[in-house]
Design a protein around this nucleic acid. Structure first.
Lengths: 143, 143
DNA sequence: CAAAAATTGTTATGTTCTATTGCTATTCTG
DNA sequence: CAGAATAGCAATAGAACATAACAATTTTTG
């Protein structure tokens, strides 16, 4: 059950990035599943709560999710009573948190903060402060 | 077309990690698709070439891929003439690169090296050296 | 202002990746 | 040797994500 003799892959930033992402995302997914949320649900709630009245389209752009895939996502959150939608004009719907949604978000935040703390704790101290800026530099640009 | 007013998500290491991973992986995927490979194909070829005679099961463990999903992967590489399988004993098959596979791998390596270089170039210099060690610390442990 | 262009929300559908289950044959281990 | 573990495989299910098309409604601009 020993590792491969030669494994050059971890030296590739791209590979390390993918493995790190899948491993950590799987971990967070199970913790959020305990309260009936997926990561994308939690992200969405966070953004709505920080931007009351935001539209689904704007969320889609910010989260880099196709508009079409936003529909079942928001429908799920609405059906669960976590958000509500109020017409802004003839074609746009503004999104807001419900009381229940705020409660659920608070639960999620606790789990997320714990997760992020543990995640960072695994990174050797001398690298820790560099992680988030380095990661954000990789995607926050051409979007 | 402006970003959201408040976007707290990039402050979360987990979110930054996911966005960075999906963005960069999509980029690499298109570059490898030009030569008919997926990332997992390239990873597999790299490991086989570094570990001649390795078994599919060992690869699956190293790449964290289910054994069952290894089957169509390796079949694809074999059908494309990139690898060959020779029986080790009654139940194991050793994997080796073909001549064509080595050529294809060389092409892939060029694209991968270019990609990795450009990826690192996007990271501000003071963070650059910390990225790979930080990432590997996130998953190289409990596996 | 009127025509053209863009945006919003939506339905329907397809693709791809990955996990699960179960099976046979073989090898390893106590 | 008997039981446990391993290798390879098939079939299938599910989740995540992409595409295409559409109607209704703004927004832009000539």
């Amino acid at each position: 059950m020993v590792a491969l003799m030669h494994d050059p892959l971890p030296n590739y930033p791209g590979y390390a990035l993918r493995r790190a992402a899948t491993a950590t995302m799987a971990e967070l997914a199970t913790r959020l599943a305990d309260i009936g949320l997926r990561q994308v649900d939690a992200s969405t709630l966070i953004l709505i709560s920080a931007n009351p009245g935001v539209t689904g389209s704007a969320l889609a752009r910010s989260l880099d999710i196709r508009r079409a895939n936003m529909v079942p996502l928001l429908k799920g959150l609405e059906d669960a009573g976590l958000i509500e939608r109020v017409p802004i004009d003839g074609k746009s719907l503004g999104l807001n948190m419900t009381e229940l949604g705020l409660q659920k978000l608070a639960e999620a935040q606790i789990r997320i903060e714990t997760f992020e703390k543990e995640l960072l704790a695994r990174v050797p101290e001398e690298h820790r402060a560099h992680l988030v800026p380095a990661l954000n530099a990789l995607w926050q640009m051409d979007s």
